[in-house]
Amino acid sequence: MGSKILPKWASKPCVMGIDEAGRGPVLGPMVYGCLYCSQSYLKTLSTLSFADSKTLKEEKREELFETLKLNDSIGWDVDVIDPRELSAKMLKKNKINLNEISHSSAMGLIDRVLKMGVLLTEVYIDTVGDAGKYEMKLSNSFPSIKFVVAKKADSLYPVVSGASIVAKVTRDRALREWVLDETAENMQRNFGSGYPGDPQTKSWLEDHKHHIFGFPSLVRFSWGTCNSYFKDAAEVLWESDNLDEDGGGSNNKNGKRQLKLSNVGFTTSKRSEEIESSGKGRCRFFQARKLEHLTYF
């Protein structure tokens, strides 16, 4: 994360680039990276052989990252967003989409660097969603900074090219060193690139799908890619999946929505197959606590 002691150049006008890596893959973290330097250093920066990380080979990216870390005239930082966090946010009852997650991550990096005392005056960033709206959002949060939100910013601006290297190398290393939470014996780590179209990734997903649990938690369950693998898995019904359905839920006393399983096609008169206790037909004390009187089993 660079030196903890604020360098002298940071109290003069500085420029930052922000870029991400790992937005599209179905597994592993998404990483936002930033790189910043003084305005006066920009010319020198452009003479270094940074390029859009996507045009470089892995060895070259690694080499440039190490060079960058040793450069006292450059600062950098990353936000590594865990795949579990991505899935959890995108599958919330009040869903948070990937663009919102991206915006928050980028703004978090700016905030972190400002709090270090760096005098940021300009930030260059690749657009996520509508460029105009994004720029307005950023300017509202950081009025003292001039923002340039553009497509292909990683090709156009050296600070963004550098940021893309920071993000890409960080993601590659995170994935390479990933420790799977799951302890089942058949866990392999030949994920491939993680992109849905990668044959190696497809093969890994096929080999690691699980009837009950879906996949190891390295996988982004919120990706549409996962749905085709879930066809054979046990069906799981969640309250938040039925919020749009009429009568799909109702509020209990505490204002929390309760799933009515009978409204989602799960109806049965057999005692042993009922899932949800309801306390129906009993006095209010028992209904409020969903306590049924089980007289026969």
């Binding site: 302890t183 009950i212 649990f213 190891p216 799981v236 019904l237 799933l259 899932i275």
Partner: peptide, 18 residues
């Protein structure tokens, strides 16, 4: 769990649910 799992039988809970 706060969901309905349409499965009745064993599952490798200790290996996956952490």
């Amino acid at each position: 769990l706060p969901c309905c799992v349409k499965h009745d039988g064993p599952a490798s809970v200790s290996h996956y649910f952490k």
